[in-house]
Simulated scan of single mutants.
Amino acid sequence: MQEQIKELFTESIQAQIAAGEVLPGVLESASISIAQALINGNKLLCCGASSCHMLSDHFAALLVNFFETERPCLPAISLSPQALNLSSQPSTNRSRDIFARQIRALGEQGDLLLVLAINGNEKSVISAVEAALTKDMTVIALVGVDGGELAGLLSANDVEIRIPAKRPSRILESHLVNLHCLSELVDMTLFPQGEN
Rank of each mutant, 00 (worst) to 15 (best):
M1C: 11
Q2Y: 13
E3W: 09
Q4R: 14
E7S: 13
E11F: 11
E11M: 10
E11L: 11
S12H: 14
S12I: 03
Q16K: 15
Q16S: 13
Q16Y: 14
G20V: 08
G20R: 09
P24T: 04
P24C: 05
L27S: 04
A30N: 05
S33M: 05
Q36C: 06
Q36Y: 07
Q36W: 04
L38G: 00
L38E: 04
L38I: 12
I39H: 11
N40G: 01
K43I: 03
L44T: 01
L44I: 07
L45G: 06
C47T: 03
C47F: 07
G48L: 03
S50V: 09
S51T: 15
S51P: 10
S51Y: 09
C52M: 06
C52Q: 11
H53K: 12
M54Q: 11
L55M: 14
D57S: 13
H58S: 13
H58D: 14
H58M: 15
A61W: 09
A61N: 14
L62I: 11
L62W: 07
F66R: 12
F66K: 03
E70K: 15
P72A: 06
C73Q: 13
C73I: 10
C73K: 13
A76W: 02
I77S: 02
S78H: 09
L79W: 07
S80Y: 04
Q82E: 15
Q82S: 15
N85W: 12
Q89E: 12
Q89I: 15
T92M: 13
N93G: 02
R94P: 01
S95F: 15
D97Q: 08
D97F: 00
F99R: 05
A100Y: 00
A100I: 01
R101H: 03
Q102D: 01
I103W: 08
R104Q: 15
R104G: 00
L106N: 09
G110P: 00
D111L: 03
L112H: 01
L112V: 07
L114D: 02
I118H: 13
N121I: 06
K123W: 09
S124G: 06
E130G: 04
E130A: 12
A131N: 04
K135S: 03
V143C: 14
V143F: 01
V143Y: 01
V145Y: 09
G148F: 00
E149M: 10
L150S: 00
L150A: 04
A151D: 03
L153F: 04
L153P: 01
S155T: 15
S155R: 13
S155G: 07
A156V: 13
A156M: 10
N157I: 02
N157G: 07
I163M: 10
I163L: 04
P164Y: 11
K166T: 12
K166D: 10
P168H: 05
R170S: 13
L172C: 09
H175R: 06
V177L: 13
C181V: 12
V186H: 05
D187P: 07
M188I: 11
T189H: 09
P192I: 05
P192Q: 08
Q193G: 08
G194R: 14
E195T: 15
N196C: 12
N196I: 14
